Amino acid sequence: MTAIKALDFYLPDELNASHPPEKRGLRRDHVRMMVLDRTTGEIKHDHFFHLADYLKPGDLVILNNSRTIPAVLQAKWLRNTVPIAPKVEIRLARRRGEDMWEALIVANPVKTGDILQFSPELSAMVIGEKENSPLKQIRFTKKGTDLYNIIYALGEPVRYEYIEQPWELDYYQTVFASHPGSVEMPSAGRAFSWELLFKLKRKGIQLEFIQLHTGLSYLLDDSLVQTPEDNDEEYQISERTMEKIIQTKASGKKVIAVGTTVVRALETAARNEVLSGITNLYINQHYPLKITDGIITGLHEPKASHLDMLSAFISERHLLKAYDEAIEAGYLWHEFGDMNLII
């Protein structure tokens, strides 16, 4: 296992964005944007809808079109047909097959063979454990689209403690999300509006989409810190998209990843020469990026492994200085917060 030396700093509670921008009276593309120069560390402050000003015709922006599923479910817990608890919470963590998921079951230890009854139409059996992890493997009685349809009807989005009240699932979607599978929103793409995407296209900036389905990042216990290598995620890149990437790089233009998920998928494909599969790639300051020239991302909390990935783009010194300035300037953190372009 790789030792993670994540960056630490003090983040005041009031900078945790608890409301979507739309609930703060802003359009989603009107959040703030901090722009960092990879080489010099120069910092500029702007708004996200001015993104096109920092990109050139021929540059390629790659977005993750994975759609967020409502991954928090409630179930009746049974053992040998005997009810153990009338209501337990299950957090889906990552898909392992058409009818199989790893899940965090928020209850006293469940055993292999226990049944989780979600509704008259849907139940799941606990079929195994993940080594050195609180996650369990469960097999549903439905699969594929039928399973997703019931999950969408019954579930709620994953919500962490800084989100003070529940928001509808639509607030956890990007405007272009199309392939269900992410347990947590691929949030770097949230600030894009259709108007902004069209504006980029009109300027001659290329757009392509990949999928990487995000897994559950927090297991509700501060002592259980998942490293990126513990967090397997499913990704898919089309041959056409990879051809566009190769053409863009060959012409001397930049490939800009929207989010750490996109960086992870692209760099995995470059490293393994496989366009789809599972990735547990850990990227830090020592990792030589082969594809990605810049990243559009949110602001990441102290000690997050995502900060390690950002240090592959820009020195830790420049990154910490920029984050200090963002805190001073009152930028907002997390999925409903402000944006950061490193280029």
Rank of each mutant, 00 (worst) to 15 (best):
K56H: 14
K56C: 08
P57T: 10
G58T: 09
G58I: 12
D59S: 06
L60I: 08
V61H: 11
I62W: 07
L63M: 14
L63S: 05
R67Q: 15
T68F: 06
P70A: 09
A71S: 13
L73T: 09
A75S: 07
A75V: 04
K76Q: 15
K76C: 13
W77M: 02
T81A: 12
V82E: 09
P83R: 13
P83V: 15
I84V: 14
A85E: 13
P86H: 12
E89N: 08
E89L: 09
I90F: 05
I90C: 09
L92N: 04
L92S: 01
A93K: 03
A93H: 05
G97A: 10
G97I: 09
D99G: 05
M100S: 04
M100F: 00
L104G: 02
L104C: 08
I105N: 02
V106S: 08
V106M: 11
A107K: 11
N108Y: 05
N108I: 01
N108P: 03
V110K: 03
T112E: 15
G113Q: 03
L116C: 06
F118L: 07
S119I: 12
S119P: 09
P120C: 08
L122W: 05
L122M: 15
A124V: 05
V126Q: 02
G128L: 09
G128T: 12
G128S: 10
E129H: 12
K130L: 05
S133P: 07
S133C: 10
S133Y: 10
P134D: 11
K136D: 01
K136M: 06
Q137S: 08
R139C: 01
F140M: 04
T141I: 00
T141L: 04
T141A: 00
K142C: 03
D146Q: 12
Y148S: 07
Y148C: 02
N149P: 02
N149Q: 13
I150D: 00
A153D: 14
G155N: 11
P157Q: 02
V158K: 06
R159C: 09
E161T: 12
